[in-house]
Design a protein around this nucleic acid. Structure first.
Length: 824
RNA sequence: GCCCAGGUGGUGGAAUUGGUAGACACAAGGGACUUAAAAUCCCUUGAACCAUGAGUUCGUGAGGGUUCAAGUCCCUCCCUGGGCACCA
């Protein structure tokens, strides 16, 4: 019976402390200008049903940071909420006939319980869910503000359409021509849609990287930089034979004398003039191709001669105009000049359609024969066949030719970006309504601010098809025009759910304010000091959020321009070498593990098995090892609790060698653990160090502790070890703290400090080398001098054997480390 | 193809500034406790070799280099993961 009491009953312990933390409102954050704030945020989850291991890892890392920093004296802000609009709710509705609202809110309450069961230290009074009208009204409000400033606009354009999701997608969400959600190929559709002008901020988004360089992973910055894709080039007005302008954009003006044909996008409006049905057959074929097919490498580039001839303003050459399925309508002017001599793709195209190749840059080291060249020469060289520019090195020619074109009036230097405006319309139901009304008389009319929010109706009828139920909901769509009062209809498209998550981090500061933000709250807490999430959002959420933050800053709503000061991208949780997924059947459910070992073990495993940024291989055995470690601490503390004296310190007391050594171990560990967490964010080694300390506790002769001074060493041990363990295994640590008879809440205690003089080894092992090979080792006093080290080395038997009659050339002494004797 | 990060025992991973490679954990083996098992506690555990020792040699993807000294720096190459790739 008595023995049972001593068992580590994690279930009861964890529930007890979770309740106590909730009851005593332990993790509520209050603005306090006298304290240094620290905002820790993890990417909030989509409430898909249950937590997966990826969430658990993400939130465990965040909670460790939050709990550690709180103990370090920061005023920590650590909120949590729900990214609760999105397609899965609709799919579930269609499949199981559950309204999206109910499906989502059920999921939220289930997942919230799961989060609480993990013991995460969130301030739940800040909880927000993006599907609540009180939240999304500010999406709508922002839309109106942006519309007024010209940052939101509607246009007809070829846009990415995912047939499986039955909606359009932003470019970021259709990378490589593949839908980010369902991975099916997208096609281009000519539609009238709403956009945010993220391109207006392209330069700012790029420039902001300088500020982030130190504390964001290089990889994320690179991905964003590539995505934004800034390029310097020249816009050149070629001409149709009729004399009309035919502008193109190029980054290689140095090759302009080598143009032998031009290529135009199948969507280009000029093509409307073509009457030849044969050509139209090609245009229609190209347009019907999926984006994936059009950009895939394997597919050969295709084209067809339009019959148009284009005049090169530099040399008067008349060249044919082709339609090419690889030319993009929405980059540059939708048309390009083609230089087969110096562009691989143009070269292949020219060979295929028997178009001449002209050499205008030669390799000065080995002259090229245009008739035998097997591929385009794309490197730098010297201009040839280029009128007055012949003989100029090609990098110089870029500038000279640009100058010339500008002087002649048929060219203009231009900066182009790869990034397009953010298409935010979605032909879906479960999202934030776009606050716009269409009136036959007044056209596009925005919903007046006083009428916000435009509430998404919750009672909807899914007719079993994948169309938005709003399409056929007259009571929603029929309205009156706010301008003229006449009959009008509402916009039925909703916003991209990435709009919701573009500003939620700031809304956490004041979820209940009557304005978008409570000014003093948002200014105190923002920006997020440490943001943690997956790298898959590098050019999605993280780019959109930076854009929104900049817009809000420019509108005077936020003080800082960048929303996330430091970013940590945690690695994936994998099993058997592959990402956990239902289709692979390698999913481990967090609930089952918590049930078997408790939340503390799961937390410890997540932090111990790999450093945060690396991927983490799931291992059942590894989990057991973590469970064992907690049990070892548990048994040791319980067994020795009766010897504990609160605030006992052996400072100044006479200690046995063994106790002195143990005490040094403790102070060394505090120093190392603090450093690992704070400076290196390497939690696995922090845990390893505490394991070493616990191993030392097991190995020391327990009789040492029963001496009066032994009790003091033990007390100091518990007083530092348990607070250190607290961010990792908060429940077990709190329970042990209470078992020792302490009344204070463990998580409120300051992070333990260490005595510098003790956080050093008093004895060290030094190594003796001869020609870099180890010949001997010796344990010596840490204060040993260089001379003494050298003397010991020379006297060492093995060293003498190796040196023998050879001549000593040099002796290198690294203080506290080694002596290397170089002989010949 | 280009860019970035990696490659360390049977496994996950340590090694912070170039200075004892393999911390810590898992797995494996042995021992103690037990009637027995589980749990627990302790010990061994990079490889090879023999003379079995406080022994020798080898060893961080491969090959070269710099250095008294290289997992760490430089060059070439191979492999893995990630990103970018018709953006003119």
């Amino acid at each position: 019976m008595a023995e049972k009491e001593n068992e580590y009953g994690f279930r009861e312990i964890e529930l007890k402390w979770q309740k106590r933390w909730a009851d005593s409102r332990s993790f509520l954050s209050k603005k306090d200008p006298s304290k240094k704030k620290y905002y820790v945020l993890e990417m909030f989850p989509y409430p898909s049903g249950r937590l997966h291991m990826g969430h658990v890892r993400n939130y465990t890392i965040g909670d460790l940071a939050a709990r550690f920093l709180r103990m370090k004296g920061y005023n920590v802000f650590h909120p949590m909420g729900w990214d609760s609009f999105g397609l899965p709710a609709e799919n579930a509705a269609i499949k199981n006939n559950i309204p999206p609202f109910r499906w989502t809110s059920d999921n939220i309450s289930f997942m919230k319980k799961q989060l609480m069961r993990m013991g995460f230290s969130y301030d739940w009074t800040r909880e927000i869910a993006t599907y609540q009208p009180d939240y999304y009204r500010w999406n709508q409000w922002m839309f109106l503000k942006m519309y007024d400033k010209g940052l939101a606009y509607k246009k007809k354009a070829p846009v990415n359409w995912c047939d499986s999701c039955q909606t359009v997608l932003a470019n970021e969400q259709a990378e490589g021509g593949i839908c980010w959600r369902c991975e099916s190929p997208v096609t281009l559709k000519e539609l009238e849609q709403w956009f945010f002008t993220i391109t207006d901020y392209a330069e700012d988004l790029l420039a902001g990287h300088d500020e982030l360089a130190a504390d964001w992973p290089e990889q994320v910055l690179t991905m964003q930089r590539n995505w934004i894709g800034r390029s310097n080039g020249l816009r050149i007005n070629f001409r149709l034979e009729s004399g009309e302008d035919f502008p193109i954009y190029t980054t290689r003006p140095d090759t302009v004398y080598g143009v032998t044909f031009m290529v135009i996008a199948p969507e280009h409006p000029l093509l409307d003039r073509i009457t030849d049905p044969g050509v139209w057959a090609f245009i229609d074929k190209f347009k019907a191709q999926s984006t994936f097919d059009r950009i895939s490498d394997e597919k050969e580039k295709e084209g067809v001669d339009t019959g148009f001839r284009i005049v090169n303003p530099f040399n008067g050459d008349r060249v044919p105009l082709y339609i090419g399925n690889f030319v993009l309508m929405d980059y540059g002017t939708g048309a390009v000049m083609a230089v087969p001599g110096h562009d691989t793709r143009d070269f292949a195209f020219a060979k295929k359609y028997d178009i001449p190749v002209k050499l205008v840059i030669d390799d000065p080291d080995s002259p090229i024969d245009v008739n035998t060249m097997q591929d385009a020469y794309v490197d730098e060289g010297v201009c040839v066949n280029s009128a007055q520019f012949s003989g100029v090195p090609s990098p110089e020619a870029i500038d000279k030719i640009s100058d010339f074109a500008e002087a002649q009036g048929f060219g203009k230097r231009e900066v182009n970006f790869r990034i397009r405006d953010w298409l935010i319309s979605r032909q879906r139901y479960w999202g934030c309504p776009i606050p716009v009304i269409y009136c036959d008389a007044c056209g596009i009319v925005t919903v007046p601010e006083k009428d916000l929010p435009v509430i998404l109706p919750l009672e909807v009828d899914f007719k079993g098809d994948s169309q938005s139920p709003l399409t056929s909901m007259e009571e929603y769509t029929k309205t009156t025009c706010p301008k003229c009062g006449g009959a009008a209809r509402r916009e039925i498209d909703t916003m991209d759910t990435f709009v919701d998550s573009s500003w939620y981090y700031a809304k956490f500061t004041s979820p209940d304010s009557k304005e978008i933000y409570d000014r003093s709250e948002v200014e105190y807490w923002m920006p997020v000091d440490q943001y943690i999430g997956g790298i898959e959002h590098a050019v999605l959420h993280l780019l959109y959020a930076r854009f929104f933050s900049m817009v809000m800053h420019d509108m005077g709503l936020l003080k800082s321009r960048e929303p996330f000061t430091r970013l940590l991208t945690q690695g994936m949780v994998i099993k058997d070498g592959a990402k956990m997924s239902k289709s692979k059947g390698n999913v481990v459910d967090p609930d089952a593990i918590i049930e078997k070992y408790g939340a503390d073990t799961v937390r410890l495993f997540m932090l111990f098995t790999a450093p945060p940024h690396k991927q983490l291989e799931w291992s059942d055995k590894g989990v057991e090892g973590c469970f064992r470690f907690i049990n070892r601490i548990w048994r040791f503390v319980n067994k020795h609790a009766h010897l504990y004296t609160a605030n006992g310190t052996p400072e100044g007391a006479q200690l046995s060698d063994a106790l002195e050594k143990l005490r040094r171990e403790l102070h060394l560990t505090v120093k190392a653990v603090t450093h690992d967490i704070q400076e290196r964010m390497q939690y696995n080694t922090a845990i390893a160090r505490m394991m070493e300390l616990v191993n030392a506790l097991y190995l020391i002769d327990k009789k040492e502790f029963t001496a009066p001074n032994g009790r003091l060493v033990l007390s100091e041990m518990f007083d530092k070890l348990l607070p250190m363990l607290s961010p990792f295994i908060p429940h077990a640590a709190a329970e042990l703290w209470e078992i020792l008879g302490n009344a204070a809440q463990l998580h409120d205690l300051p992070w333990p400090d260490y005595i510098d003089a003790l956080a050093k080894r008093d004895e060290i092992e030094i190594v003796f080398q001869v020609n870099g090979k180890i010949r001997g080792k010796e344990t010596v006093n840490a204060g040993i001098t260089r001379e003494e080290m050298e003397r010991l080395a020379k006297n060492h038997e093995k060293v003498q054997e190796s040196v023998k009659e050879k001549t000593v050339k040099k002796i290198i002494v690294v203080p506290g480390k080694l002596v290397n004797i170089v002989v010949q």
